[in-house]
Simulated assay, not measured.
Amino acid sequence: MKAALCKSLDGANGLVVETVTEPSAGPGQVLVRVAAVGLNFADTLITRGKYQFKPDLPFSPGAEVAGVVESVGAGVVDITLGDAVMAYVNWGGAAEKIAVDAEKLIPIPGDVSLTIAAGLSVTYGTAMHGLADRGRLKPGETVVVTGAAGGAGQAAVEIAKLMGARVIAVVSSEEKGAIAKAAGADELIFFPGSDLKAEVRALTNGEGADVVYDCIGGEAAEPLVRALNWQGRFLVVGFAAGEIPKIPINLLLLRGAEMAGVFWGEAVRRDPAGHRRNMLQVVNWVREGRLKPRTHALYPLERIREALGVLERREATGKVVLTIGS
Protein backbone atom coordinates (compact mmCIF):
# COMPACT_ATOMS: atom_id res chain seq x y z
CA MET A 1 0.00 0.00 0.00
CA LYS A 2 1.01 3.65 -0.36
CA ALA A 3 1.73 5.98 2.53
CA ALA A 4 3.17 9.45 2.97
CA LEU A 5 6.27 9.12 5.14
CA CYS A 6 8.07 11.82 7.06
CA LYS A 7 11.72 10.81 6.73
CA SER A 8 13.33 14.00 8.04
CA LEU A 9 12.10 16.81 10.26
CA ASP A 10 12.00 19.37 7.46
CA GLY A 11 8.24 19.90 7.31
CA ALA A 12 6.60 19.22 3.96
CA ASN A 13 10.02 18.84 2.30
CA GLY A 14 10.72 15.80 4.44
CA LEU A 15 7.73 13.87 3.08
CA VAL A 16 7.77 11.17 0.40
CA VAL A 17 5.04 8.83 -0.81
CA GLU A 18 6.23 5.23 -0.86
CA THR A 19 4.97 1.67 -0.88
CA VAL A 20 5.00 0.18 2.61
CA THR A 21 3.89 -3.04 4.27
CA GLU A 22 0.14 -3.21 4.85
CA PRO A 23 -0.88 -3.28 8.53
CA SER A 24 -3.22 -5.84 10.05
CA ALA A 25 -5.85 -5.54 12.73
CA GLY A 26 -4.64 -6.83 16.09
CA PRO A 27 -6.86 -7.80 19.02
CA GLY A 28 -9.37 -5.05 19.70
CA GLN A 29 -8.46 -3.28 16.47
CA VAL A 30 -10.06 -2.62 13.10
CA LEU A 31 -8.31 -2.24 9.75
CA VAL A 32 -9.68 0.84 8.00
CA ARG A 33 -9.29 1.46 4.27
CA VAL A 34 -8.72 5.20 4.37
CA ALA A 35 -10.69 7.40 1.98
CA ALA A 36 -9.89 10.84 3.37
CA VAL A 37 -7.51 12.46 5.84
CA GLY A 38 -8.09 15.80 7.55
CA LEU A 39 -4.89 17.83 7.84
CA ASN A 40 -4.24 20.39 10.57
CA PHE A 41 -1.62 22.96 11.48
CA ALA A 42 -0.35 20.39 13.97
CA ASP A 43 0.80 18.29 11.01
CA THR A 44 3.18 21.07 10.01
CA LEU A 45 4.59 21.00 13.54
CA ILE A 46 4.87 17.24 13.97
CA THR A 47 6.79 16.98 10.69
CA ARG A 48 9.31 19.49 12.10
CA GLY A 49 9.65 17.85 15.50
CA LYS A 50 7.92 20.80 17.17
CA TYR A 51 4.70 19.12 18.30
CA GLN A 52 3.94 17.69 21.76
CA PHE A 53 4.10 14.19 20.25
CA LYS A 54 7.38 13.22 18.60
CA PRO A 55 7.02 9.87 16.80
CA ASP A 56 10.11 8.04 15.61
CA LEU A 57 11.12 8.49 11.97
CA PRO A 58 9.81 7.50 9.52
CA PHE A 59 6.13 8.08 10.30
CA SER A 60 3.00 9.18 8.47
CA PRO A 61 1.33 12.45 9.52
CA GLY A 62 -2.45 12.82 9.52
CA ALA A 63 -4.46 12.75 12.76
CA GLU A 64 -7.99 12.51 11.35
CA VAL A 65 -9.17 9.70 9.10
CA ALA A 66 -12.41 8.55 7.53
CA GLY A 67 -12.87 5.35 5.60
CA VAL A 68 -14.42 1.91 5.46
CA VAL A 69 -13.85 -1.10 7.71
CA GLU A 70 -11.89 -3.76 5.82
CA SER A 71 -11.26 -6.29 8.61
CA VAL A 72 -11.75 -6.65 12.36
CA GLY A 73 -9.45 -8.13 14.98
CA ALA A 74 -10.24 -10.57 17.76
CA GLY A 75 -12.65 -9.34 20.39
CA VAL A 76 -14.21 -6.56 18.29
CA VAL A 77 -17.99 -6.42 18.46
CA ASP A 78 -20.64 -4.11 16.96
CA ILE A 79 -18.41 -3.25 13.99
CA THR A 80 -18.84 -5.01 10.66
CA LEU A 81 -17.08 -5.08 7.34
CA GLY A 82 -18.04 -2.16 5.12
CA ASP A 83 -19.00 0.20 7.96
CA ALA A 84 -18.13 3.84 7.29
CA VAL A 85 -16.11 5.19 10.22
CA MET A 86 -14.00 8.13 11.34
CA ALA A 87 -11.30 8.37 14.00
CA TYR A 88 -8.71 10.60 15.62
CA VAL A 89 -5.39 8.72 15.51
CA ASN A 90 -2.71 11.31 16.53
CA TRP A 91 -0.60 10.43 13.48
CA GLY A 92 -0.33 7.70 10.85
CA GLY A 93 -3.46 8.58 8.89
CA ALA A 94 -1.82 9.59 5.58
CA ALA A 95 -1.83 6.05 4.25
CA GLU A 96 -4.14 3.81 2.26
CA LYS A 97 -4.87 1.64 5.32
CA ILE A 98 -4.48 2.00 9.07
CA ALA A 99 -5.13 -0.25 12.06
CA VAL A 100 -7.19 1.61 14.68
CA ASP A 101 -8.34 0.65 18.16
CA ALA A 102 -12.03 -0.13 17.83
CA GLU A 103 -13.00 2.17 20.73
CA LYS A 104 -11.71 5.17 18.76
CA LEU A 105 -14.09 4.67 15.84
CA ILE A 106 -17.12 6.91 15.32
CA PRO A 107 -19.80 5.65 12.89
CA ILE A 108 -20.56 7.85 9.88
CA PRO A 109 -24.17 7.95 8.62
CA GLY A 110 -24.56 7.10 4.95
CA ASP A 111 -25.63 10.63 4.03
CA VAL A 112 -22.44 12.25 5.44
CA SER A 113 -19.51 12.26 3.00
CA LEU A 114 -16.21 10.73 4.04
CA THR A 115 -14.31 13.86 2.97
CA ILE A 116 -16.42 15.99 5.34
CA ALA A 117 -16.24 13.43 8.16
CA ALA A 118 -12.45 13.31 7.92
CA GLY A 119 -12.20 16.93 8.97
CA LEU A 120 -14.55 16.94 11.95
CA SER A 121 -12.58 15.48 14.85
CA VAL A 122 -9.97 18.08 15.76
CA THR A 123 -11.65 21.45 15.26
CA TYR A 124 -15.23 20.49 16.09
CA GLY A 125 -14.16 18.01 18.76
CA THR A 126 -12.11 20.75 20.43
CA ALA A 127 -15.02 23.20 20.19
CA MET A 128 -17.44 20.70 21.73
CA HIS A 129 -15.06 19.77 24.53
CA GLY A 130 -14.22 23.42 25.19
CA LEU A 131 -17.68 24.95 25.06
CA ALA A 132 -19.78 22.08 26.42
CA ASP A 133 -17.46 20.21 28.79
CA ARG A 134 -15.10 22.94 30.03
CA GLY A 135 -17.17 26.07 29.44
CA ARG A 136 -20.60 24.65 30.39
CA LEU A 137 -22.11 26.98 27.80
CA LYS A 138 -25.84 27.56 28.17
CA PRO A 139 -28.39 28.86 25.65
CA GLY A 140 -28.66 32.63 25.71
CA GLU A 141 -25.11 33.23 26.96
CA THR A 142 -22.57 35.36 25.13
CA VAL A 143 -19.34 33.84 23.82
CA VAL A 144 -16.29 35.73 22.58
CA VAL A 145 -14.17 33.74 20.11
CA THR A 146 -10.68 34.95 19.23
CA GLY A 147 -9.04 33.95 15.96
CA ALA A 148 -12.59 33.43 14.75
CA ALA A 149 -11.67 33.14 11.06
CA GLY A 150 -9.24 30.27 11.61
CA GLY A 151 -10.19 26.61 11.61
CA ALA A 152 -10.54 26.31 15.39
CA GLY A 153 -12.28 29.66 15.65
CA GLN A 154 -14.80 29.00 12.89
CA ALA A 155 -15.71 25.68 14.50
CA ALA A 156 -16.21 27.38 17.86
CA VAL A 157 -18.47 30.01 16.29
CA GLU A 158 -20.57 27.33 14.60
CA ILE A 159 -20.85 25.10 17.65
CA ALA A 160 -21.65 28.01 19.97
CA LYS A 161 -24.49 29.08 17.70
CA LEU A 162 -25.86 25.53 17.58
CA MET A 163 -25.78 25.55 21.38
CA GLY A 164 -27.93 28.68 21.41
CA ALA A 165 -25.32 31.30 22.27
CA ARG A 166 -24.71 34.80 21.00
CA VAL A 167 -21.24 35.00 19.43
CA ILE A 168 -18.84 37.93 19.29
CA ALA A 169 -15.97 37.17 16.92
CA VAL A 170 -12.52 38.75 17.32
CA VAL A 171 -10.74 39.03 13.95
CA SER A 172 -7.88 41.04 12.50
CA SER A 173 -9.36 42.24 9.17
CA GLU A 174 -12.55 42.86 7.21
CA GLU A 175 -11.82 39.78 5.09
CA LYS A 176 -11.56 37.58 8.16
CA GLY A 177 -14.64 39.25 9.57
CA ALA A 178 -16.60 38.09 6.54
CA ILE A 179 -15.45 34.51 7.19
CA ALA A 180 -16.52 34.71 10.83
CA LYS A 181 -19.87 36.18 9.84
CA ALA A 182 -20.40 33.38 7.34
CA ALA A 183 -19.76 30.91 10.18
CA GLY A 184 -22.57 32.56 12.16
CA ALA A 185 -20.97 35.29 14.29
CA ASP A 186 -23.43 37.91 15.50
CA GLU A 187 -20.93 40.73 16.12
CA LEU A 188 -17.33 41.53 15.16
CA ILE A 189 -14.47 43.16 17.02
CA PHE A 190 -11.31 44.02 15.09
CA PHE A 191 -8.06 43.43 16.97
CA PRO A 192 -5.31 44.68 17.07
CA GLY A 193 -6.60 48.22 16.87
CA SER A 194 -9.33 48.23 19.50
CA ASP A 195 -9.86 48.11 23.26
CA LEU A 196 -11.15 44.57 23.69
CA LYS A 197 -12.48 45.07 27.20
CA ALA A 198 -14.39 48.20 26.24
CA GLU A 199 -15.74 46.69 23.02
CA VAL A 200 -17.01 43.53 24.72
CA ARG A 201 -18.63 45.48 27.51
CA ALA A 202 -20.26 47.84 25.00
CA LEU A 203 -21.74 44.87 23.12
CA THR A 204 -23.07 43.26 26.31
CA ASN A 205 -24.70 46.27 27.98
CA GLY A 206 -21.78 46.52 30.36
CA GLU A 207 -22.09 42.99 31.72
CA GLY A 208 -19.28 41.21 29.86
CA ALA A 209 -18.83 37.85 28.21
CA ASP A 210 -20.07 34.65 29.82
CA VAL A 211 -17.46 32.56 27.98
CA VAL A 212 -14.24 33.49 26.17
CA TYR A 213 -12.87 30.87 23.74
CA ASP A 214 -9.31 32.07 23.23
CA CYS A 215 -7.41 30.56 20.31
CA ILE A 216 -4.68 33.19 20.08
CA GLY A 217 -3.39 34.20 23.52
CA GLY A 218 -0.88 37.03 23.37
CA GLU A 219 -2.08 40.59 23.99
CA ALA A 220 -5.74 39.64 23.57
CA ALA A 221 -5.94 37.46 26.68
CA GLU A 222 -5.73 39.87 29.62
CA PRO A 223 -8.27 42.44 28.36
CA LEU A 224 -10.69 39.58 27.66
CA VAL A 225 -10.28 38.24 31.19
CA ARG A 226 -11.12 41.77 32.33
CA ALA A 227 -14.17 41.64 30.05
CA LEU A 228 -15.66 38.53 31.70
CA ASN A 229 -19.12 38.64 33.22
CA TRP A 230 -19.65 37.60 36.84
CA GLN A 231 -18.80 33.87 37.04
CA GLY A 232 -17.55 33.97 33.46
CA ARG A 233 -15.37 31.19 32.04
CA PHE A 234 -12.14 31.86 30.14
CA LEU A 235 -11.13 28.90 27.96
CA VAL A 236 -7.44 28.54 27.07
CA VAL A 237 -7.43 26.88 23.65
CA GLY A 238 -4.22 27.96 21.92
CA PHE A 239 -1.51 30.54 21.38
CA ALA A 240 -1.62 31.40 17.69
CA ALA A 241 -0.26 34.86 18.49
CA GLY A 242 2.94 33.16 19.62
CA GLU A 243 3.07 34.62 23.12
CA ILE A 244 1.84 32.81 26.24
CA PRO A 245 0.21 35.54 28.36
CA LYS A 246 0.74 36.02 32.10
CA ILE A 247 -2.61 36.80 33.68
CA PRO A 248 -2.99 38.49 37.10
CA ILE A 249 -5.09 35.90 38.92
CA ASN A 250 -6.77 38.53 41.10
CA LEU A 251 -8.89 39.30 38.02
CA LEU A 252 -10.53 35.89 38.40
CA LEU A 253 -11.28 36.50 42.06
CA LEU A 254 -12.89 39.89 41.38
CA ARG A 255 -15.30 38.35 38.88
CA GLY A 256 -15.87 35.02 40.58
CA ALA A 257 -14.52 33.72 37.29
CA GLU A 258 -12.75 30.60 36.08
CA MET A 259 -9.90 29.90 33.69
CA ALA A 260 -9.92 26.42 32.17
CA GLY A 261 -7.49 24.65 29.87
CA VAL A 262 -8.90 22.95 26.77
CA PHE A 263 -6.48 20.08 26.12
CA TRP A 264 -8.69 18.15 23.73
CA GLY A 265 -6.20 15.46 22.73
CA GLU A 266 -5.59 14.42 26.33
CA ALA A 267 -9.32 14.59 27.07
CA VAL A 268 -9.94 12.13 24.21
CA ARG A 269 -7.44 9.71 25.77
CA ARG A 270 -8.82 10.04 29.29
CA ASP A 271 -12.52 10.16 28.42
CA PRO A 272 -13.17 8.28 25.16
CA ALA A 273 -16.86 7.96 26.02
CA GLY A 274 -17.19 11.74 26.35
CA HIS A 275 -15.38 12.25 23.05
CA ARG A 276 -17.66 9.74 21.38
CA ARG A 277 -20.75 11.49 22.73
CA ASN A 278 -19.53 14.86 21.45
CA MET A 279 -18.62 13.54 18.00
CA LEU A 280 -21.93 11.73 17.57
CA GLN A 281 -23.62 15.07 18.21
CA VAL A 282 -21.40 16.82 15.66
CA VAL A 283 -21.99 14.14 13.01
CA ASN A 284 -25.73 14.29 13.65
CA TRP A 285 -25.73 18.08 13.15
CA VAL A 286 -23.94 17.55 9.83
CA ARG A 287 -26.45 14.87 8.81
CA GLU A 288 -29.34 17.22 9.63
CA GLY A 289 -27.76 20.01 7.59
CA ARG A 290 -27.48 22.28 10.64
CA LEU A 291 -23.67 22.17 10.54
CA LYS A 292 -21.98 22.76 7.19
CA PRO A 293 -18.20 22.45 7.53
CA ARG A 294 -16.18 24.45 5.06
CA THR A 295 -13.59 22.70 2.89
CA HIS A 296 -10.68 24.76 1.58
CA ALA A 297 -9.48 22.15 -0.93
CA LEU A 298 -9.07 18.43 -1.60
CA TYR A 299 -5.63 17.06 -2.48
CA PRO A 300 -4.61 13.55 -3.53
CA LEU A 301 -2.12 11.80 -1.26
CA GLU A 302 0.66 12.44 -3.77
CA ARG A 303 0.22 16.21 -3.27
CA ILE A 304 0.56 16.15 0.51
CA ARG A 305 3.54 18.53 0.37
CA GLU A 306 1.41 21.12 -1.38
CA ALA A 307 -1.44 20.60 1.07
CA LEU A 308 0.79 21.06 4.10
CA GLY A 309 2.29 24.17 2.51
CA VAL A 310 -1.14 25.79 2.47
CA LEU A 311 -1.46 25.17 6.20
CA GLU A 312 2.07 26.29 7.01
CA ARG A 313 1.52 29.59 5.18
CA ARG A 314 -1.85 29.93 6.96
CA GLU A 315 -3.69 30.29 3.66
CA ALA A 316 -6.51 27.84 4.40
CA THR A 317 -10.01 29.25 4.82
CA GLY A 318 -11.53 25.86 5.54
CA LYS A 319 -10.47 22.27 5.99
CA VAL A 320 -7.57 20.89 3.97
CA VAL A 321 -8.30 17.24 3.14
CA LEU A 322 -6.29 14.49 1.50
CA THR A 323 -8.20 12.02 -0.65
CA ILE A 324 -6.86 8.49 -0.97
CA GLY A 325 -7.71 5.82 -3.51
CA SER A 326 -10.62 5.89 -5.90
Rank of each mutant, 00 (worst) to 15 (best):
G218K: 07
R233L: 05
G147E: 06
D101Y: 12
D271P: 03
G217E: 12
K104F: 09
P109C: 06
E64V: 12
A260C: 15
R287Q: 14
T44V: 13
L311K: 01
I324Q: 02
S194D: 13
D101M: 12
P139H: 10
G92T: 06
V211P: 00
R270I: 10
S173D: 11
P55H: 13
T295C: 04
C215V: 15
R270M: 14
V34N: 02
G130F: 11
T44N: 00
V321R: 00
R255F: 04
V65C: 04
R314N: 07
G238K: 00
G256T: 10
G140R: 02
G242K: 00
A198S: 10
L45R: 03
H129E: 08
N278K: 05
K97Y: 15
A132S: 14
A36H: 04
V171C: 13
V65F: 09
A36D: 05
K319L: 09
H275I: 03
I116K: 00
L57T: 13
A267L: 06
A148R: 05
E222F: 10
P58C: 13
R136N: 15
V283A: 03
I247S: 07
H275R: 10
A87L: 02
Y124T: 03
S194Y: 09
I179S: 01
K197N: 14
P107S: 08
A117H: 03
A152K: 00
Q154S: 02
I46H: 02
A160F: 12
G130S: 01
V16D: 13
R134V: 07
V212Q: 05
L131S: 00
G135F: 08
I249F: 07
A99K: 02
R48L: 06
V85E: 05
P272E: 08
E243V: 12
L114K: 08
V321E: 02
V262S: 00
K104N: 07
G150H: 04
A127G: 02
M259C: 06
L31N: 02
E302K: 07
